[in-house]
Amino acid sequence: MRPHLGYAVMLERFPPAEAVALAALAEQHGFRGTMASDHFQPWLPSHGQSGFVWSVLGAIGQATTGDFGPGVTTPSFRMHPAVVAQASATLAAMHPGRHWLGIGSGEAINEHVTGAYWPEPAERIARMFEAVDVIRKLFAASAAGRDIRHSGEFFKLESSRLWTMPERAPEILIATQGPVTARRAGRTADGLITTNAPADRLAALLARFAEGAREGGRDASRMPRVLQLNLAWAPTDEEAMADALAEWPIGALRFPRGDIRSPFEVEQLTRTVRPEDFAGRMVVSADPDVHRANLQRHLDLGFTRIYLHNAGRDQARFLEVFGRDVLPGLRA
């Protein structure tokens, strides 16, 4: 069976129209779906973009035929869970069976902009799971044609419903790099999303997710386990490393980024990143065989869908090379 390899289009790096064109180009080269980033600000000033993810997802849905969704959106600070539920349900109604909803606990660089208090991680995670509860209630009640109310610790919802609903509600995938949250996601969500980490950490994360699924009476082997894989490919190793250092130095950072508020802060923090800092965290290579082996290792760990993000600016050449030389050699 052909594995599910998709393209991660970074809206903090590419203008909206170019992002849509790249998603379509990725599909032409054999990529089967699109993950789009939800940012209010870019990670680095040099990235220079930050389009509104829901607008771009609508265009991606029209320009492609595969699955698509926000890699991580945060229905907690910038947007109420009811608004996120409405946006997601609308996309799913327009594109049946294709749209999924990735939810995370948020990062200050995107969520602090409304001026609210920025809480500690434990509260952010609690808010995330309550937001998932609100969205699930809205999906279920709206599909049944009835109103729903919610009054919780963080969110209130007056009696209402979503008047536009798909026949099947979108899958809700929880994004995390923490084992405790992964276990809870296994109990309460439809699937898991995570990103680059050493193999032993990823294996432990998947194991905790499966443990939570069993506790919830579900089979984790039938649930989506999604990875956004950041990498650096270019025609030469030297170009690939230059791209990694210039475009995606955050891939080498070894501390959480959740409390950083400004792209200019990130720029200062990444000035000390050296080539050796990418070791074990992000593959930087010109050799398609090296990237294919890395992808296969992650598929063998148990990920069911992997969305690739290449650090280089020449995305068209990356998509061509990987579509021709990397994807065909992979096995599920």
Rank of each mutant, 00 (worst) to 15 (best):
M1Y: 08
M1P: 12
M1T: 14
R2F: 01
A8F: 15
L11H: 06
L11A: 05
P15C: 05
P16W: 00
P16T: 01
A17H: 04
V20G: 06
V20Q: 03
A24D: 13
Q28P: 01
H29W: 13
R32K: 14
G33K: 03
M35P: 00
M35K: 04
A36E: 06
S37D: 11
S37A: 15
P42V: 12
P42R: 04
P42C: 07
W43K: 03
G48F: 08
S50K: 00
S55C: 10
L57R: 08
G58R: 02
G58A: 05
A59K: 00
Q62Y: 11
V72T: 05
V72S: 03
R78T: 08
M79F: 14
P81W: 04
V84A: 10
A87I: 06
A87E: 15
L91G: 09
M94L: 15
P96E: 00
H99F: 15
L101A: 06
G102D: 03
G102T: 00
P119T: 12
P121I: 02
A122Q: 14
I125Q: 01
I125D: 00
E130G: 07
V132K: 08
V132E: 08
D133C: 08
R136D: 09
K137G: 13
K137M: 15
A141T: 09
A143F: 02
D147I: 01
R149K: 14
G152V: 00
L162K: 06
W163G: 11
E167F: 00
A169H: 02
P170N: 05
E171Y: 01
I172D: 01
P179Y: 01
R187C: 11
R187A: 12
A189F: 02
I193H: 05
I193W: 01
R201F: 08
L202P: 07
L202H: 10
L206R: 06
L206D: 09
A207D: 15
A207Q: 14
R208G: 01
A213T: 03
G216V: 10
M223F: 13
L227M: 15
N230M: 12
W233H: 03
A234R: 11
P235Q: 07
E238L: 10
M241C: 04
A242W: 09
A244E: 04
E247D: 06
R254W: 13
P256G: 05
S262D: 14
S262L: 14
P263H: 07
Q268P: 00
T270A: 04
V273T: 12
R274D: 09
G280D: 08
V283W: 03
V283Y: 01
D287T: 03
N294F: 12
L295V: 01
R297P: 00
G302E: 04
A311I: 04
D314W: 02
D314T: 13
L319A: 02
E320D: 15
V321S: 11
A332K: 07
A332C: 09
